[in-house]
């Protein structure tokens, strides 16, 4: 994705939201808003490119390196381009014993991609993730903010059709 620095700016309403969030912290502690603002940035710009991170740094008056540090530490941030819909399948113990490995394999075969890859049409990225706090409703995946639980092959088929028709499932963040 080509984005020159001055093209990057949040929408008016997102800027308002940034203002609301930073006001939740005492004067001088605006850096505390960073994680949430990065969620907003990812929702709006698709992924966290260097120019996007630099923009966030300017907004919060911190050094760019402080943003890079955070963006690379947390698993929810994408510092590389991803598909419009990220299918994040839980692979941890309780989900594994209820069939998560089979669901991952099923999605891989269906979409013709491996864990971590994006479909050629740019719609889906498949990512295995660690426990999402839905262990009793396993196997499960998250797409955007939505939890899809008690997965079966039929449910996966349905989900993929649905997102193909309307590929919006990124973090709303707000």
């Amino acid at each position: 994705m080509e984005t020159s620095e001055n093209q990057i700016a949040f929408k008016e309403e997102t800027l308002k939201e940034v203002g609301r969030i930073t006001a939740q912290f005492p004067e001088g502690m605006q850096k505390s808003a960073l994680l949430r603002v990065l969620h907003l940035a990812q929702a709006e710009f698709g992924w966290l490119s260097v120019p996007v991170m630099d923009y966030v740094a300017r907004l919060l008056h911190v050094n760019p390196v402080e943003v890079y540090e955070v963006a690379t530490f947390y698993s929810m941030y994408d510092t590389q381009p991803v598909g419009k819909v990220k299918l994040e399948v839980c692979r941890t113990g309780p989900c594994m014993i209820e069939g998560a490995e089979h669901i991952v394999k099923y999605i891989e075969d269906k979409l013709g991609i491996k864990d971590g890859e994006t479909t050629a049409d740019g719609i889906f990225t498949l990512k295995t993730v660690e426990c999402l706090g839905a262990c009793g409703y396993a196997p499960m995946l998250q797409a955007g903010e939505k939890f899809h639980e008690h997965l079966t092959e039929a449910k996966v088929d349905e989900l993929i059709e649905k997102y193909k028709a309307n590929p919006v499932a990124n973090y709303m963040g707000m």
Binding site: Q24, F25, M29, K31, S32, A33, L34, L35, R36, L38, H39, L60, V62, E66, E69, V70, F73, Y74, S75, M76, Y77, V129, E130, C131
Partner: peptide
């Protein structure tokens, strides 16, 4: 106020949680 993490089990440890809430790595 409510503040989100961004995917890191370690941020459940209380001092990592504090670091994270300060906008840093956990």
């Amino acid at each position: 106020s409510v503040s989100p993490g961004a995917g890191a089990y370690i941020c459940g440890e209380e001092t990592a949680l504090i670091e994270s809430l300060e906008g840093k790595r956990g």
